[in-house]
Design a protein around this nucleic acid. Structure first.
Lengths: 343, 343
DNA sequence: CTGAAAGCGCTAACAT
DNA sequence: ATGTTAGCGCTTTCAG
């Protein structure tokens, strides 16, 4: 019933040559004469030969695969990043194995172990919001497996990383709000145990400090990166009748939560409450009003990430860790346009 | 410098037993005494042993991996599906290898070949919008690799599939528009060479026919599933001053394109043009007005899909193909609420 | 309960 | 230019 897969041996037998010759021919090894190579390839195609990648990887001690660990995929930032990673990997002849930690650091750890066990040639990771223990990353390094962090990066020395200029971007956004006239400014922050939450908060602080505006600590609310955080934090302040005029949010889902909450209680954006967020997405472009944001190029992140990782894979031990910082762009749409609280 | 990975042999040597015993102990084989098993596991942990999955798979002729081929990932429908697939796979001890065809049928074909070459235990696929040739799927079947199609399904006999009741859902949406009073109804369709495009069009037609409304062919525009299709098709009709009162779109990105185009030319939704789309997403819930839609449960799709596939993997040859049809729900939000063209 | 033998399908090094 | 030998690290019979 079930077709037995053809192997190197089958095609060798048919041609009265050895499997080794076939193997080499298939991989365009210069040893083999063009004539034989051609013949072998033709026969392989006829028989519907597909190499057993598992056996190949075992023998070659190389998997031609890179592992990726992302905290989420249902988020346009990560979805977009992984799409380009796949594209670039394919162009360079690599497979990719994606795992999703779901923001769970234990799961993340298990997934990294699995990736090591699968003998991936390199690992790309954006850590979960709960990750604090870096020992697993040290293990990867000790094993000599090239590793690169993107966007969400632990505090470690001598690592490859592609970070976004979170602090600078947050500064730009906050300063823009100040420049158009806002003073009562809040920040719905991400957890500050992780770089992106911390840096975005610092950028916010930098701008406030530069313009000598006192930060109202009640308006700075730390939480996760979700809509829920935005919704709940807004509602809390709303019930306390303690809303600021303007909020800078650490992610776009947080802003989405605010949109939903504001609609629910009948407050108008940007008239009653104005906003800007960190991170771009199709979803916020079509909001009403379209949400302004700090844009981070996922294209650039993926490109730098892959080029560093591939170089590291090729050079191996002698490769010196590289670090790239991606600049951000301020995109002003329907929010954060002008001061709306002329009381 | 680089740590050499510990193997079965290393831990066998240390314990003065054979690798075979170690191998069995690690996998809780009943052969081995609890005492030895415990000792082996302890030592393995101490040495930081990680099994070489490649070698294991080669020897066991089983990869414990399922392959997934999706046309896109930056689309909330697929992102959501793949997230649950990962979760369910993990619960059942399977790895997943995801590939993305980017709606390219050639790439899709290569990816399926790679998956076969990697000896995956099963394959889940949602075909690209261009796929017409089904020979590669026949090959998979001949090779005896369990295969299941989800959502986008080719015309084939005897296959596992989890489809959505596209026709019924499209009917519901269109009929709802008719019931609230619309008569000038258009449909921005997907390519009808693929089931979802075809079925959604048929559902639209069913409803029109049932209510004896003539379909204006100029208002039925076939295209891909993108925003661009929505934008361009809207603009075309707009320029011809030939817009219908109401449009049912085959996907939510198409509707997003219409929102963008309408905003550009200053037409108000739902007053000047009303809409409903097939497929739900966070992004459309927060539009202004929130877009009504036909909702398809990604949860259910993933669950059925995985349970059928896993059963097929276990039963092998004797398994009879299964087919599931997922019902849809009409979600009415800020569009498609009442007839707005009281002229 | 433990081990010895054999091999999964392929590739790398070394001949010829 | 082709073949020989050996082995990647593990698992599966089958013997003891």
């Amino acid at each position: 019933m079930k077709e037995k897969p053809v192997t190197l041996n089958d095609i060798a037998a048919k041609l009265n040559i050895t499997p080794v010759t076939v193997s080499k021919a298939l991989r365009n090894h210069p040893d083999i004469s063009p004539k034989t190579t051609k013949l072998v390839k033709k026969t392989a195609a006829e028989l519907g030969y597909l190499p057993n990648i598992i056996a190949r990887n075992l023998a070659a001690r190389k998997s031609n695969t890179i592992g990726v660990v992302l905290p989420k995929i249902e988020h346009s930032f990560f979805a977009s990043i992984i799409e380009s990673i796949y594209d670039i990997a394919e162009e360079n002849g690599y497979e990719v194995i994606l795992t999703i930690s779901q923001e769970d650091n234990e799961r993340e750890k298990r997934q990294i172990q699995t990736l090591l066990a699968m003998k991936v040639d390199g690992i790309i990771i954006s850590i979960s919001e709960k990750t604090r223990d870096t020992s697993i990353f040290e293990l990867v390094k000790r094993r000599g497996v090239p590793l690169i962090f993107i966007d969400r990066i632990p505090d470690m020395e001598n690592i490859n990383k592609v970070a976004v200029d979170d602090r600078g971007g947050a500064f730009k956004a906050t300063e823009h709000a100040i420049k158009i006239g806002y003073r009562k400014i809040g920040h719905f922050a991400g957890y500050t145990n992780i770089n992106i939450g911390r840096e975005r908060y610092l950028g916010f602080k930098d701008a406030m400090k530069k313009h000598k505006i006192k930060i109202n600590p009640q308006w700075v609310i730390e939480g996760d990166y979700s809509e829920k955080h935005g919704y709940n934090s807004f509602m809390k302040l709303y019930k306390e009748k303690n809303l600021p005029d303007f909020i800078f949010t650490a992610t776009y889902p947080i802003a989405l939560g605010i949109y939903a909450a504001a609609a629910e209680v009948g407050l108008k954006i940007p008239d009653d409450l104005d906003l800007i967020c960190f991170g771009n997405a199709k979803a916020i472009e079509l909001l009403s009003p379209p949400l302004s944001c700090v844009d981070q190029s996922t294209q650039l992140i993926s490109q730098h990430c892959m080029s560093i990782l591939l170089e590291n894979i090729i050079k191996g031990e002698e490769f010196k860790p590289k670090s790239v910082l991606i600049e951000t762009d301020l995109i002003i749409r329907g929010t954060c346009v002008k001061y709306n609280r002329a009381k």
